[in-house]
C-alpha cells in the first residue's frame, strides 16, 4: 500500500526514472494531482488494482496485448481529464515494436503479384505474339519494310502484289495490325531503296473499281505470279430480291432485281449473299458457273462466296 503513499513514489522517481516522461509516470502524477487513490481508479475503470499499478509502473509484462493497454490508457486519461494521445504515443515508443504488430507475426511469402513474375509474363506474351505473327506469315519481316515504304499510299495499296498470300484479304488485316511501329517517320529514311521493294505495277490490284470490263483471264494455275481478278457476274432470269455485301461493307447490292439484269460485283471479296429466288440467278465466277442451287434451301440461298477460293477449289 505504499503505492498510495506519495513519498514512496517520489523516492522511486529519484532512483529509477530519470526521464519523467514515461506514460505510467504521467498518469501517476496526474492522478496524484487530483488526489485520487489507486483503488478508486481501479473501481472506475473496472480493472484490478494490480493492473492499474502495472500501468503506472510501465510494467507491460503483466498487462495484456497492445489493444487493451492503449484502451486502458485512454480511459484512464479520460478519467483524469488529460489528453490520451501523447500518452499513447509514449507507450508505443516504449514498446519498441511497431504498434501495428499484433500477437501473431505476419509472414508474407510468395506474393502472387510479384513484380518479376509480372515482367516475365509480359515479355513472354510479347514473344509469343511475335512468334505467332511470324509463323502465320514467315516473310513478315520483308513485308515490314515494304509496307513502311508504301505507307504514304492508300491502304489498299499496301499489299505488294507480288506476294502470294496477299490475294485474300485476311492476311492484310493481320498485317496492318502488325505495322503498328509508327510508319510515317520511316519513308523519308528508306526512300532511296524504295524502287527495289515496291513493284512498279500497282494497277493490277485485286480490288479495282467496279466496272472494269476486263476480259476475264482464265484462272491461272499459279496464283503467286499474278493475282487473278476473278470477276463475279450475276445474271437474273427472273425477279429476285438480293442482299450482297463485301467484307468492307462499302459495296453492296441490295434490293429487287428484275429479269435480264446483269451485275458485276465490285468491292472486296468474299461476299456474303442472300438470294431470295435462287433459281432465277446465274452466277459466273471468272469463266466457271457457280452452282447456286447447291446453296439454296427452299429457293432461298444464304452463303459466302470467295471467288478466289472457289476457283482454287475447281482447280
Amino acid at each position: 500500500m505504499d503505492i498510495n503513499d506519495p513519498t514512496a513514489y517520489l523516492q522511486r522517481e529519484n532512483t529509477e526514472q530519470s526521464p519523467p516522461a514515461t506514460c505510467g509516470h504521467q498518469l501517476r502524477v496526474a492522478r496524484e494531482r487530483r488526489n485520487i487513490n489507486v483503488q478508486q481508479v481501479a473501481h472506475d475503470l473496472r480493472l484490478t488494482v494490480n493492473t492499474v499499478k502495472a500501468l503506472e509502473n510501465d510494467d507491460y509484462t503483466q498487462l495484456p496485448s497492445t489493444v487493451f493497454v492503449t484502451g486502458y490508457i485512454k480511459s484512464y486519461a479520460r478519467l483524469l481529464g488529460i489528453d490520451p494521445q501523447p500518452l499513447i504515443a509514449n507507450y508505443r515508443a516504449a514498446q519498441h515494436q511497431p504498434a501495428a504488430e499484433s500477437a501473431q507475426p505476419i509472414k508474407r511469402n510468395n506474393q502472387p503479384g510479384d513484380k518479376t513474375v509480372r515482367l516475365a509474363l509480359v515479355v513472354l506474351a510479347l514473344v509469343v505474339t511475335v512468334a505467332i505473327a511470324l509463323l502465320w506469315n514467315p516473310d513478315l519481316s520483308l513485308l515490314f519494310s515494304a509496307a513502311q515504304n508504301e505507307s504514304a499510299t492508300e491502304p489498299t495499296a499496301m499489299m505488294p502484289p507480288d506476294h502470294p498470300s496477299n490475294i485474300d484479304p485476311q492476311p492484310t488485316a493481320e498485317l496492318t495490325e502488325n505495322i503498328e511501329p509508327d510508319p510515317p517517320q520511316q519513308p523519308s529514311l528508306l526512300m532511296p531503296e524504295q524502287p527495289s521493294t515496291t513493284t512498279p505495277e500497282p494497277e493490277i490490284e485485286p480490288v479495282p473499281e467496279l466496272p472494269i470490263a476486263m476480259p476475264q483471264p482464265e484462272p491461272t494455275p499459279e496464283p503467286p505470279a499474278e493475282p487473278v481478278p476473278a470477276e463475279v457476274v450475276m445474271e437474273f432470269s427472273g425477279p429476285c430480291w438480293v442482299d450482297i455485301r463485301d467484307t468492307t461493307g462499302n459495296f453492296k447490292l441490295f434490293g429487287e432485281m428484275s429479269k435480264g439484269d446483269r451485275h458485276v460485283l465490285g468491292g472486296e471479296p468474299p461476299y456474303s449473299m442472300i438470294l431470295g429466288n435462287a433459281s432465277a440467278v446465274t452466277i459466273t465466277v471468272g469463266t466457271a458457273t457457280f452452282d447456286v442451287q447447291s446453296q439454296a434451301r427452299g429457293n432461298v440461298a444464304r452463303f459466302d462466296l470467295d471467288p478466289q477460293d472457289y476457283l482454287r477449289g475447281l482447280n
Binding site: 475503470l45 489493444v67 484502451g71
Partner: peptide, 13 residues
C-alpha cells in the same frame, strides 16, 4: 457498456 456490464471496455484503434 462498462456501466451496464461492470467490465472494462476498450475501444479499438
Amino acid at each position: 457498456i462498462a456501466e451496464e456490464t461492470g467490465l472494462p471496455v476498450v475501444l479499438a484503434d
